[in-house]
Design a protein around this nucleic acid. Structure first.
Length: 661
RNA sequence: GCGAGCGUAGCUCAGUCUGGUAGAGCAUCACCUUGCCAAGGUGAACGUCGAGGGUUCGAAUCCCUUCGCUCGCUCCA
């Protein structure tokens, strides 16, 4: 992390991103669009480098992972099978008093007495109404008006009350006064209209507190010095319509639309609805069979994909951290169920802490999960994110999705990350590595009706050789796990037992739905982490000795947007410039290079430091042979140390390529 | 989406209260200068003051609406 940790560090980083062309706001000239960001020239290079490195590390350099590139719009059924249509449309309620938002399904049911108010009017308005009928001020004092209004539970009832009072008043009150009064009341009411509000009081709380809460509610809505109208009470049992904190009524549940909807084809009817994918993973599951049939892979193996995903985030926040359009780098790594491992190898290997080393045939899901967590940490370390800058979060049983066995989040300590109760910065999520069992493939099998099973020759053979008692014990355990799975997934009770038995039967014949470990990383979040991690400020005395703020982006050479800057020492010597151009052309086919001859040499170094360029090559008079022994040598400057070494032009390219590996 | 704060040049900001027709520093570009870490000189370019409407003889300034940003609630890669 950058050393000076002022509160506005993030602002400075955002400003640098724009100033140097890392990140721009999308559609800025039209006022921008919330939650969408563009990468400028330096950002585009940076992101490309990162994605390429991920792809290389995760697929090309591994024998057991292949790639996929699927469409963003897929069959809408996919999102029913995955559960996104349901979970991404959670109904939300707002507290009418505090505006606090609740997920409707997470509100704890409340019981007690609900105090209901039909509306409220301001004291002044009532006073005025009373004044209008001044002639009978005695009878129509404010209190009486309130008494008249206050007990009516509905508008209709109020009118009855008014009529009643008027009937009583007849005889000594003129027709004119009665009309005046009636219309005065109407006037008051028309200024507020119906504004129903309720407060739920738990057993034993005084009614006054409900009234106080209601007064607050009406006061917030601009009714000065409110007078409550139409109080009534009602016994309430197990209701989720009230805020558990203050008893205030909530808005009715409004479904939240977190997936981007679109229409496929020229008509835009309900039947044409499709979604922009909210994650890239589902395409991998949906194409699992095709990949399996064509890629000559055996379980365990993985399918990797990099691609855009879209979520209608409630609140895009923290610069690019939570965007509505973002890119994911996801791997689905398919493994055998633990029971299959046990059948084949006798037992499942459970490794100790740390990286468990090269994959072993007898690894169960825990070993694989741990392996991928550690592999991913190595990846981050390899691009300059040290363990100290990262954080880890092991999801608790409550946080886990019902089908997940475990999930480890890899966090990065961003400048905007919050501190926990102990004052430690925990960080925000870059990647989640989930052990998802066979949930996803099974769901697609269930919804598509197409088998997602894998036939495991080795397993079939193993079961054939297994002692009957051991076999029965294993299958019994497998059945129990399946039973649990199917129950959680809402299968009909009568189906559960047969389905579970069926799955066990299939297992004994060598068939199973593979389980999956899912390392899912946010590309844009990683870019942001790399930018924050690289940002450095230093006070350095300039040539006059006055300290100057220097900003440097300390990117790891592997991912730096520009690898090397090439500079003629002086611009006004054509022979220096020409030689520098030659070197520029020499390097250009192999890496991103920038040629710069503007301003003083120091200024050019500083400019490249701010862009995060790790190396600088300067062509001086010695390059041209002023000192014959230095002919055809250049200085190679290291960004982080500012040290310069003299290297021959012949050595330059191999040396740089080595440093960039 | 709701609440609070903010929006003036590429960047950082002054000017807004008290209306009179827009400024500074840095950055950018050109030329000169420069013999290794943001040197210096000369010149240039750069803002319909977030947008729209209103009040006014006159609006960056006052009022309304809208968009965007930041923070909180909520969601997550």
């Amino acid at each position: 992390m950058a050393e000076p940790k002022q509160p506005d560090l993030m602002e400075k980083i955002v400003s640098l991103c724009k100033r140097r062309g890392f990140v721009f706001q999308s559609s800025e000239i039209y006022g921008g669009i919330n939650g969408f960001w563009d990468y400028g020239p330096l950002g585009a290079e940076l992101k490309r480098n990162v994605k390429e490195l991920w792809w290389r590390t995760m697929t090309r350099q591994r024998e057991d992972v292949v790639g996929l590139e699927a469409t963003i719009i897929m069959h809408p059924q996919i999102w029913r099978a995955s559960g996104h249509v349901d979970t991404f449309s959670d109904p939300m309620c707002d507290c009418l008093l505090t505006k606090k938002r609740f997920r409707a399904d997470q509100i704890e049911p409340q019981s007690g007495t609900a105090y209901r108010f039909w509306t409220a009017v301001s004291f002044d308005a009532l006073q005025n109404a009373a004044l209008k009928v001044q002639a009978s001020a005695d009878l129509w004092s404010r209190d009486k008006v309130i008494a008249c209004l206050g007990t009516a539970k509905t508008r209709e009832e109020l009118h009855d009350r008014v009529r009643e009072s008027l009937a009583q008043a007849k005889g000594w009150m003129s027709e004119e006064h009665l009309t005046t009064f009636h219309s005065a009341i109407e006037d008051v009411l028309s200024t507020v209209g119906d504004l129903e509000f309720s407060v739920l009081l738990p057993q034993g709380k005084p009614p006054e507190s409900a009234r106080r809460t209601a007064l607050q509610f009406y006061a917030q809505r601009g009714i000065k010095d409110p007078v409550l109208i139409g109080e009534s009470t009602e016994k309430i049992e197990n209701s989720t319509r009230f805020n558990p904190d203050n008893g205030s009524l909530l808005t009715p549940p409004v479904p939240f639309n977190l997936m981007f909807k679109t229409y496929v084809g020229p008509t835009a009817t309900e039947a044409d609805v499709a979604y922009l994918r909210p994650e890239t993973a589902q395409a991998i599951f949906a194409q699992f069979k095709n990949v399996l049939d064509t890629a000559r892979q055996k379980v365990p193996f993985g399918i990797g994909q990099i691609g855009k995903a879209f979520r209608n985030e409630v609140t895009p926040r923290n610069f690019t951290f939570r965007s509505r359009e973002f890119e994911q780098m996801e791997l689905e790594f398919f493994i055998k169920p633990d029971e299959a491992i046990e059948a084949i190898h006798g037992a499942v290997i459970t490794p100790g802490p740390g990286h468990p080393g090269e994959p072993q045939p007898a690894w169960g899901w825990q070993a694989w999960h741990q392996y991928w967590v550690e592999e991913r940490v190595r990846f981050y370390e390899g691009i300059g994110l040290s363990r100290e800058t990262l954080g880890f979060h092991h999801q608790t049983a409550e946080e886990l999705a019902h089908y997940a066995r475990a999930c480890t989040d890899i966090l990065f300590k961003f400048p905007f990350s919050k501190k926990d109760a102990q004052g430690n910065v925990t960080g925000d999520e870059l990647e989640g590595i989930a052990a998802r069992g066979d949930f996803d493939l099974s769901q697609h099998q269930r919804h598509s009706g197409k088998p997602m099973e894998y036939f495991d020759d080795e397993l079939k053979g193993a079961f054939a050789k297994l002692a009957e008692a051991k076999k029965q014990e294993l299958l019994e355990r497998f059945t129990a796990v399946k039973r649990g799975d199917f129950t959680k997934r809402g299968y009909k009770p009568e189906e559960i037992e047969t389905k579970a038995r069926e799955a066990a039967e299939r297992l004994s014949k060598g068939f199973y739905v593979p389980h999956v470990i899912e390392p899912s990383a946010g590309a844009d979040r990683l870019i942001l982490a790399l930018i924050c991690n690289a940002y450095r400020e230093e006070m350095i005395p300039d040539s006059k000795g006055t300290p100057e703020l220097r900003v440097m982006m300390k990117f790891h050479p592997r991912i730096a947007p520009v690898k090397v800057g090439v500079f003629p020492l002086l611009k006004n010597r054509p022979e220096l410039v020409a030689k520098a151009r030659q070197i520029f052309e020499l390097l250009r086919p192999h890496m991103t290079v920038q040629f710069d001859d503007a301003g003083s040499i120091g200024k050019r170094y500083a400019r490249q430091d701010e862009a995060g360029t790790p190396f600088g090559v300067t062509i001086d008079f010695d390059t041209l042979g002023e000192k014959p022994e230095l002919l055809d040598t250049v200085t190679l400057r290291d960004r982080d140390t500012t040290q310069q070494t003299r290297v021959t032009i012949g050595e330059l390219l191999p040396l740089l390529l080595e440093k960039l590996r």
